[in-house]
């Protein structure tokens, strides 16, 4: 019941799960298909730079993204943790980043100053999101947030919480009745003994 209620609160009525991580290492940031395509609903990716400079999000087939970043310094998001809302980051590579924006491998792209957002739909996976500055300059101190939502999860959690509450109620009633019976039996036993002693 407690767990169900907590998840109900955590998901909210929209049934949204959210994860975030901040990369301090210079280079590009990558969200692999092991995270991006592990759900059946669209994933909203938001990237925010602390320095307010340009940031670009783009999604490409995983083999293409891998080829583009083969020798570059990247921080890779390769796992998420729920309900903690955290993501695992792994730094790799040391090469400089080339300007990736002219390539034709990107299915979707978005660019903004300081922050930008991209909604990646499912069905064409495996795909990888690459976060860059939009040119060859390396990114530093960028926070990426992933969010996806399904109202069904909220109602499932609600049902779980309700079932938990009913079970807990039965358990409490059972416990209470046991105590009452025990007390009554004690009283009855005490009364009989006293009566017999008087006789």
């Amino acid at each position: 019941m407690v767990l169900g209620s907590w998840i109900v609160v955590k998901l909210g009525p929209s049934g949204q799960a959210q994860f975030s991580a901040t990369s301090k290492a210079p280079g590009a940031m990558v969200i692999t298909s092991d995270v991006l395509n592990t759900v059946d609903v669209p994933v909203r990716v938001t990237a925010t730079r602390r320095d307010g400079a340009a940031v670009r999000l783009a999604v490409a087939p995983t083999p293409d993204a891998r080829a583009m970043l083969a020798t570059s310094a990247v921080s890779t998001v390769n796992a998420v943790h729920y309900p903690a809302g955290t993501m695992d980051l792994r730094a790799s590579g040391a090469g400089t980043l080339s300007d990736l924006s002219t390539a034709d491998v990107w299915r979707l792209a978005a660019k903004g100053a300081g922050s930008t957002e991209l909604v990646v739909d499912q069905g064409r996976g495996p795909e990888t999101v690459v976060v860059t500055s939009g040119d060859a300059k390396p990114l530093t101190d960028v926070t990426v947030t992933l969010a996806w939502a399904n109202r069904t999860w909220f109602f499932e959690a609600l049902v779980a919480a309700t079932i938990g509450a009913v079970l807990a109620a039965f358990a409490l009633i059972d416990l209470w009745q046991s105590r009452v019976i025990a007390l009554r039996t004690d009283e009855a036993a005490t009364g009989t003994t006293t009566s017999e002693a008087t006789v």
Binding site: T32, T38, V39, P63, Y82, N150, W153
Partner: peptide, 21 residues
Amino acid sequence: GDSLVGIHAAPQAKADTAPLT
């Protein structure tokens, strides 16, 4: 925890699809 928010295994790359939409 994962299944509560719909997480499952990532799909594998298909060789018989176009890389472009």
